[in-house]
């Protein structure tokens, strides 16, 4: 199982590798895991990931670290996690959906 840092680094690299897909998107995402938070900022095709909470996130994804890591690595079905409330999304749901498309 990779560490959360590796997963978020991969997300950052993934967006950077295809900046055209993030063009025009300006959003701050916060990931609240067990005892830790991560922030993903996307601004005009550029992505930056940093540890810690955001000042004013547009969208916050909440899950235990284990569940999040299992979702990220394909071991937990995110739809099941969401319907079982093991993954919660607060804030702008439209931006959450844009993020998932961006990372597809």
């Amino acid at each position: 199982m990779p560490e959360a840092k590796e997963v978020f680094s991969e997300i950052e690299n993934r967006i950077k590798s295809k900046p055209e897909k993030a063009a025009g998107l300006n959003a701050t995402y916060q990931f609240d895991l067990t005892g830790e938070s991560w922030t993903l900022k996307i601004a005009d095709g550029a992505a930056t990931v940093s540890p810690g909470a955001a000042q004013s996130p547009n969208t916050t994804l909440i899950a235990s670290t284990d569940d999040w890591m299992n979702i990220a690595t394909g071991k937990l079905n995110p739809v099941q996690a969401f319907t079982q409330q093991r993954l919660k999304v607060k804030g702008d749901m439209g931006l959450a959906m844009k993020l998932q498309r961006l990372l597809q």
Binding site: I11, R14, P78, K88, M97, L103, Q104
Partner: peptide, 29 residues
Amino acid sequence: ATLVTDVSVTSRPITESPLTERRWVRRGE
């Protein structure tokens, strides 16, 4: 292999109606 971290595809444009957490849960169900 490419990393994909999406939840799923959307079947309707999300602009048709406001996307709320409840709607997302319903869709997942």
